[in-house]
């Protein structure tokens, strides 16, 4: 049973690599459809912003509630600003925004592509001599990565602000003290490493959702299953990538 699963996994990874290569090629050779790209940028951005915003604010508050306490127990209230911001920028921000994004955008993308496959629209494109990868997939791939990048920056900012606010309300930490510890101890690299992770997650989400979407089969039931597989695979990739990137980025 494990052997069978491992084989299936290998097959999927192989398929995804091939798809990634073809999508990137479509982008690099500028054959990707530009209108589709901007259309997806708009839709992805608009669709995910409210959800990411709400999550970011709540996550900022939760981070303070959980970690601020730990820092306070060690009598280091002056470090609250640093502690929560560090956790947010480096880990919590990218991961949770990534998970949220994978749900909102990844699932949606797979569902759309899956429906198009099942209703034979993709075949229709091929019959019109339009390469589905250049027309459908490559634009979505790029749009998702760029949007993830932008939304993580905005989301991080909102989370940090929410964290600062919560620290003030719940722990009585003065805003200036918070900002001071933040400014003093947070390095630009902390911010960048989080962003790099976000881009990594974004590519994973984009690739996974496109792969499962375009390989859907089996009618309405197949679409549901494809979305299910896509979100699960995205979640796993986020955590595995996070581990690898954390180890590689000091």
């Amino acid at each position: 049973m494990i052997g069978g699963r491992l084989l299936a996994l290998m097959e999927q990874l192989g398929g995804m690599s091939v798809l990634a290569a073809r999508m990137v090629w479509g982008l690099v050779t500028l054959r990707a459809d530009r209108t589709e790209f901007w259309r997806n940028m708009y839709r992805v951005g608009v669709k995910s912003f409210p959800v990411v915003a709400v999550t970011a604010v709540l996550v900022g508050a939760i981070t303070v509630i959980q970690t601020g306490q730990v820092v306070a127990e060690f009598g280091a209230t002056s470090l609250v600003g640093w502690g929560t911001s560090f956790a947010t920028l480096r880990e919590i921000g990218p991961i949770l925004i990534g998970l949220m994004f994978s749900g909102r955008v990844g699932a949606n993308n797979t569902a759309e592509l899956g429906t198009m496959v099942v209703t034979e629209q993709v075949d229709a494109l091929r019959a019109l001599a339009i390469n589905p990868i250049d027309f459908l997939l490559a634009p979505r791939y790029l749009a998702i990565i760029i949007m993830m990048f932008m939304l993580t920056i905005i989301g991080n900012l909102m989370a940090l602000l929410a964290a600062a606010g919560t620290a003030y309300v719940l722990l009585g930490v003065d805003m200036r003290l918070y900002y001071a510890s933040f400014a003093e101890l947070i390095e630009l690299w902390d911010f960048f490493s989080g962003i790099i992770k976000a881009v990594g997650f974004g590519s994973a989400i984009a690739l996974v959702s496109c792969y499962f979407g375009i390989n859907t089969s089996g009618g309405a039931v197949g679409v549901g299953r494809a979305v299910n597989s896509a979100v699960v695979a995205s979640a796993v990739s986020i955590f595995v990538l996070d581990f690898l990137l954390s180890a590689m980025l000091p």
Binding site: T55, L58, G103, R104, A107, A111, G224
Partner: peptide, 21 residues
């Protein structure tokens, strides 16, 4: 149809994640 199932699954994951948050 299949579009509805896709929408339902997306809705589920988004709402559930928000709910958990």
């Amino acid at each position: 149809g299949s579009e509805g199932v896709g929408m339902a699954t997306t809705r589920a994951v988004v709402n559930a994640s928000l709910g958990i948050t």
